[in-house]
Amino acid sequence: MKSDKELIKEFQGGNEEAFNQLVKRHLPDTYGFFIKFTSDTVEAEDLAQDVFIKMYKALKKFRFESEFKTYLFRANINMSNSYLRRNKWRNLLHLDQAPEPAYLDTSQEDEWRRKELWDAISKLPKKQRMVVSMRIAKEMPYKEIALAMGINVNSAKVSYHHAIKTLKDLINK
């Protein structure tokens, strides 16, 4: 099986099929990541599509300064940040349409709790939001988070700790 690097080089040489193989390889992770964010298959698919369209352009100039997996993950995080920003506005604009939790059945209640969690995450400062997203959505170890964000491990741990404390306050309020 060809490595990511080999596939990217082939793609840069004009082989479109190499890009398709790369997408197939990383689609489950990317899609799964966005599913956890959005709880919506259509939105998750759209976000994954946007990320891979950006990758199509970016990979032609990719200089292998970092692992493709890390590069893709950063793109996912940036996309999720944009999504959370958009969602924050959408929530503000549709506050009156939010259903009352007391009237929801169990499945809707789960959905409501998930939404409440991601809404709370969207209120966190950017660095904390990124760390907590990676921990929750990907269950990534601190070492990988630090690598993906270009920070040191302790900084990632501190950000996560602050984020959890803030989330606790926001959700239990």
Binding site: L27, P28, Y31, I35, E45, R113, R114, L117, I136
Partner: peptide, 12 residues
């Protein structure tokens, strides 16, 4: 929060 965020990822 891990429980809440868990969701079944349907395959694409």
């Amino acid at each position: 929060i891990k429980e809440v965020s868990d969701s079944n990822v349907s395959s694409l």
